[in-house]
Design a protein around this nucleic acid. Structure first.
Lengths: 120, 120
DNA sequence: AGCTGTGCTATACTTTTGTATACCTTGGTA
DNA sequence: TACCAAGGTATACAAAAGTATAGCACAGCT
């Protein structure tokens, strides 16, 4: 209910509107964030697993992107002790909530492609 | 109904899934596309109007961004003849459909911000 | 003919983003 | 003890995105 209020409030203010959307855009843009989030939707994974899942990503980039996604609260890094040393990465609640956003984007993407093709 | 089919199809294929979302992401990213689309939601506008609506944008950028948005089928450039020379830019149907995507992104952005603040 | 406003384009530059390559540490394993 | 795999970091470099500055074409007005 609180959200409903601030949702309307923000929509009434162009600057806050653009800002809130930019927040969302920023956690998704760049070449690698989407593939990383996408692969973690299925289940949590370890560094090497993610690396092997995403063609051509180097450890340097992956390391940097994971750190960014972590500080943005999209994923969390879990190190179960006892085990040799096996860091695991998984989506946070908020990260999982991106699914609805991505589904909308997917829908628009397909629809737009159809629309463009139809109007040639 | 056709859409429902391809929607499911695409969701089943990770590569096409990422691709369709990237399509959407690409029309939104960069520093200026969102403000431009945002300002055109209210109504169609001319070059100078857009420029005056968006602080610090230079004609060079605006020109480039408008051309990109046009080739991507998000806006259309209309030159009503008879008038001296007054180009007008307005959203296409597909451009207007972005509203639903942006609303979802807005919602997530606000929600995520609340969530982050709550967990400090 | 000269000045003004609209609607741009061109060029060179800076900043940000992405990439390649090499290397380090920690705990097994032979 | 030497070597290997997992999980990274560091450094230098290349490519893409963004910016500043200048200027041009056309129409209308005086």
């Amino acid at each position: 209910m609180e959200n409903q209020v601030s949702f309307k409030e923000v929509k009434a203010c162009p600057e806050r509107y653009v800002l809130a959307i930019s927040d969302t855009l920023n956690v998704l843009t760049g070449k690698w964030k989407l593939p990383i989030i996408g692969t973690l939707f299925y289940n949590k994974k370890r560094f090497e697993e993610i690396k092997n899942n995403i063609p051509r990503i180097t450890p340097g980039i992956l390391s940097k992107e994971l750190r960014e996604l972590e500080t943005n609260g999209i994923i969390k890094r879990v190190v179960p002790d006892s085990v040799p040393v096996a860091a695991e990465y998984e989506l946070t609640d908020s990260g999982r909530n991106l699914k609805e956003v991505l589904d909308r984007m997917l829908q628009w993407g397909i629809q737009h492609r159809d629309w463009v093709n139809a109007s040639i």
